[in-house]
Structure formats: structure tokens, C-alpha cells
Simulated assay, not measured.
Amino acid sequence: MAPTQYKLIFRVPPSHLEVCKQAVFAAGAGAYPGGMYDECCFEVLGMDQFRPTDKSTPFIGKPGQLERVAEYRVETLCVGEDVMRNSVKALRKVHPYEQIVIEVVQLVDIEGSDFY
């Protein structure tokens, strides 16, 4: 039985894009089954909006002030639950934000299904 596959998605400021990608790649993310490709990801630059409260210590911005900043959204594959969990741990160690946007989506193999 093939290991479960996950899509790891996170947002990161441009200043920390490469260090975050390298951390998750070192944990095994971005490698496709069969060993033919590694360090694979999709990234797109977009705008994020947030307002830090007085309870925060923001990396960017000031408490009470609405911020709009450029961030990358990065998507990469994690083959196996251990790779996914280790990649999230590695990302948390190097990401500059105190509240990180991280999504993990379990992928479903539809080969042989009735989907077109």
C-alpha cells in the first residue's frame, strides 16, 4: 500500500521564502514517489492583510495598525505522514511569524475511480 500523500500549504514573507522552502525540503517535502523529482513546489506572490492586536509581537507591522503585505503562498507535496509532520515542525522553527498560516490537505488517489 502506498503511503498517504499530503499537500502542505503555507504563506511566508519574501525575506524568508528560501529558508522556509529549504527547511521543508530538508524534512522530505517536495519529493515525488520514485525519486525522479525533489524540491518541487508551487509558489505565488499575493497580498495578505492583518491587524496585530496589543497582545501581539508582530514581525511586520505595529499593534492596532492594519497591514497589507506581500507574501508568497507555497504548496508542496509530502509523501507519508511522518514527512508531513516533520515538514511542519521544520517550518515552525524557521518561519518568522508568531502566527503562521499552515494548511495540510490529505490527498486522495482517484486512479480507477469514476471521476473524469
Rank of each mutant, 00 (worst) to 15 (best):
K89F: 02
V79D: 08
E39F: 02
L17S: 11
L66I: 15
K55V: 02
D38F: 08
A29N: 05
G64C: 07
S15P: 01
V101Y: 03
G61Y: 08
G80F: 00
V88H: 05
D48K: 14
E67L: 05
G46K: 06
I110P: 07
Q106L: 03
P63R: 00
G61N: 09
I110E: 10
V74W: 01
P13V: 07
Y72V: 13
S87N: 08
Q99D: 12
D82S: 09
F42L: 13
R11V: 01
P96Y: 11
A70H: 09
D109I: 02
L91N: 06
R73F: 01
H16D: 14
R85Q: 14
C41G: 03
G35H: 11
F25T: 00
G46A: 10
D48F: 10
E18F: 00
P96Q: 12
D48Y: 06
E43W: 00
P14A: 07
V19W: 02
C40S: 13
E98L: 02
F59G: 04
K93Q: 14
H95S: 06
A23M: 05
Q65Y: 11
M84F: 03
E103Q: 13
T57W: 04
I102Y: 03
R11I: 02
K93A: 03
K55A: 10
Q106C: 06
P58H: 06
R92V: 00
G61L: 07
V79G: 04
V101L: 10
A26Y: 11
V88D: 03
C78S: 07
T57G: 05
R68E: 15
G30I: 09
P58L: 10
R11P: 00
Q22L: 10
V79C: 12
R68K: 11
P33G: 04
P63H: 05
Y97F: 12
H95L: 07
E98A: 13
V12I: 15
Q49N: 08
V12S: 07
Q65I: 15
K89D: 12
R68G: 09
V12Q: 07
E75Y: 10
F50I: 12
V69I: 15
S15T: 14
G64L: 13
E39N: 13
R68Q: 14
A31R: 08
P63F: 01
F42A: 01
N86H: 09
D54T: 15
E43R: 02
P52F: 08
G61K: 05
V101D: 15
H95M: 09
A70K: 12
Q99G: 03
Q49E: 14
D38T: 15
E71T: 15
P58K: 10
P58W: 09
E98S: 12
A23T: 04
K21M: 10
V24C: 02
E43S: 14
D109V: 04
N86P: 05
R85L: 14
M36R: 13
Q106Y: 04
G34R: 11
V101I: 09
T53A: 07
C20Q: 04
Y32A: 12
P14S: 06
P96R: 08
V24G: 00
D54C: 12
P52E: 09
Q22M: 11
P13F: 03
A70I: 01
M84P: 00
F59W: 13
A23F: 02
D38N: 13
A23L: 06
Q65A: 05
L45M: 11
G28V: 11
V94C: 09
R73A: 06
D109T: 03
C40W: 04
G46D: 11
I102C: 05
P52D: 11
P63N: 04
D54Q: 12
